[in-house]
Design a protein around this nucleic acid. Structure first.
Lengths: 330, 330
DNA sequence: TTGTACGCGTTATCAG
DNA sequence: CTGATAACGCGTACAA
């Protein structure tokens, strides 16, 4: 292993000078040159553990969420990755696979100082998660909304507005018997979207009851497919908003297999606007929650927080947009 | 910050004893108990940087690939993540976004010791990448195939067999005018798949020429769509193998818009068997390269290598399988 | 401007 | 079985 000492010896200077050159403090031209050539000749790379120990920073940022199988989170990861690419920070991924226990385990190890900051987007509304987050010693950026008001930087999208956009559009295209194929109710998005749907329906003077909601047990294609398979009498609806695009894809598949015409018999709207939405037949109208952009903003918030720990908490609101495609054609 | 010293003071023992308790070395029951309660009371977490510096291990494994937008790599990440979940190792993601420069940059910083091992799946056939990999001081597991014979643990899938499976199936369902919508030729998969296609066609006595190959300039939906849009006369083919499922989806979209019936006029086969394949209409026959499983195996190889650096190099071959769906119905 | 020397929090050696 | 202590590689007062 080539250490800073080796470089110093080679350059005929002290390790202090080498360190100064590396970290950009002033040094004489002559000295700097000798150090730099020594570094190059030896292929020296500063040891990140020693550096981390000394400066008390790991130069790593951890991104934690629940399901890497969900393209929306992948998009978020991409956004974070892109925002971090040009910085000194590396991205650590702590993707759990839909288990609160795993997340709790991850969170508990965050105290070890292997990350300077945590960007987290939890879907489960578990009290333990909120508690652990609030006790963390490093900056946290929350993507999404937690039931309790966590006092951390936050980027979120108002799903009520998004759902409103969808219901509005269905109404405008003359659908009145509107339902929701919701994701799991024990998740934050599931709970919030259900509530948002109910109030949107009532506000617009449309009929809403318990039976307006079909519950899927996963935010997935099969989740959507199975939910409507069990439900069966889809003909009571002429418009359906789905918990996400994958659920919508599952519903679409069921409709295709059972001779329900989209958008003729039934209009369909998804959420997230993942690539899939523009590929399906018919293409899927979707409420875009801008996951990639939220990831980018989250990373930005983290960088700013790291640069200035004292700055006031920021809560950034991303506006959802409705992307209209064939599945809701009049 | 609560350090090992604080725990030692609290427990009334030396830091050495605390360290021993943590790392499972023998200690008297009495001592162990006092240390453990002190740890709990103080909420002590060993500092990972100090530990890394001392034991010369970061307990992190880096996964590097080119495109997080590609579901096949996401699946691979999932496989790696799952295999690492129960171990002491954390997963670091170093996803570049389709630029050799970025990968090279990442690779150059791998010398800093922030990762104990590198799992890499490069698509670009750039000499610099191979060279950098071979000079790395940490174990490397290669997922995929590099043009030069790198002497590292390796999990790969023989695309020639996969393509052969596809061509075979098309022939068996009575298609003879078979083409390839290939991905970029400056990538490893692109080059290998083209070669594999050529030899499969010749072996089976089917007509092959330069015009049998349509080149897309990205492994993406729009890549596939644009490639066939420019090419136009798709009626010269009755069967098409696509560089991956996304390219196939783009081709499918073009066909749908231009009144080409799938599988009636044209049979379509994709590669990777991502979720999308089972959702498209018609559902897409696909050559499954088992990305998730390869990721899992790669992580396994890495763990074994880390446990025993002297063990012989392993090259594991994963068999591709053909998943037949509607797009190639006879 | 440069070099010496100390400490960051651990682990591991060695003497007790 | 335990405690004192020497590294690990780096950054930075402080002295020169």
């Amino acid at each position: 292993m080539v250490s800073i000492k080796a470089v110093a010896d080679r350059a005929g200077v002290s390790i202090a000078s080498v360190s100064r050159v590396i970290n950009g403090t002033v040094a004489r031209k002559e000295t700097e040159l000798r150090v730099r050539t020594a570094i190059k000749e030896l292929g020296y790379q500063p040891n990140s553990a020693a550096r981390a120990l000394k400066i008390r920073q790991s130069e790593q940022i951890c991104l934690s969420f629940d399901d890497l199988a969900n393209p929306a989170y992948v998009a978020m990861t991409r956004g974070v990755g892109q925002a971090l690419a040009e910085t000194k920070y590396r991205l650590i991924l702590a993707s759990a696979f839909s288990s609160v226990e795993e997340i709790v385990k991850h969170l508990e190890t965050m105290g070890r100082g292997f990350a300077d900051g945590l960007i987290i987007s939890p879907i489960y509304a578990d009290k333990r998660i909120a508690k652990l987050i609030s006790h963390l010693q490093i900056p946290v950026v929350l993507v999404g909304t937690m039931p309790v008001g966590l006092n951390v930087d936050n980027v979120y999208v108002d799903s009520a507005i998004g759902i409103g956009l969808g219901v509005d559009h269905l109404k405008a295209t003359n659908r009145k018997r509107i339902g929701l194929v919701n994701g799991p109710i024990d998740t934050n998005p599931g709970r919030r979207r259900r509530l948002a749907f109910e109030s949107a329906m009532k506000e617009m003077g449309l009929k809403y009851s318990e039976e307006s909601v079909i519950q899927a047990d996963a935010f997935s294609i099969s989740g959507g497919y199975e939910a409507v398979s069990k439900f069966r009498n889809l003909d009571k609806f002429d418009g359906l908003i789905c918990g996400n695009d994958q659920i919508a894809a599952g519903v679409l598949k069921y409709c295709y297999e059972n001779g329900i015409a989209i958008p003729g018999d039934l209009a369909l709207i998804g959420i997230d606007n993942i690539d899939l939405a523009s590929i399906l037949h018919p293409t899927l109208t979707s409420i875009d929650l801008h996951s990639e952009k939220r990831g980018e903003i989250a990373a930005q918030l983290m960088l700013e927080r790291l640069a200035d720990p004292a700055r006031p908490i920021q809560k950034i609101n991303v506006k959802p947009t409705l992307v209209i495609r064939e599945s809701t054609a009049a």
